[in-house]
Amino acid sequence: MWTLAACTAGPSPRVDVRPPEPATSRSAGEAGTPASSPRIAMQVQRVTPLPAARALLAQSDAALARGETARAWRLAQRAQRISPQASEVYVQMAQIRLHEGKVAQARQLLTKARALAGQDASLLQRIRDLAARTG
């Protein structure tokens, strides 16, 4: 029943690749319960920028308002090094790219921002507003 018609390349090399070590001797079901729970706490979390990153983002925004996009971008990148999991960083980067007319890049950055925004309604709204401008 497992005959593979599509596999016209002939016999596969017999590479017997194994998982690293015998899995837990307990069955999957018994092993699972307690470990799942802390994850649920994680789902509501999201990372917010550290104060230093926030300050850099504010500086970046100010630079953008002056039309200094290169400087704005560098400051946002520096903020990203500090708080790489913070959605705000990517929102700012998207804003800069939008300002430069690089719509495709802005769209990707907003996807990133959205993936990190968690359930933060106002942030999500801001991302939606910006996304609307990418057409």
Partner: peptide, 18 residues
């Protein structure tokens, strides 16, 4: 366990590490 049978008659049946 299962066995894959290729058109040329060879078979392949992967195993688990344990």
């Amino acid at each position: 366990p299962f066995e894959l049978r290729f058109e040329n008659g060879d078979t392949w049946s992967p195993e688990n590490f344990d």
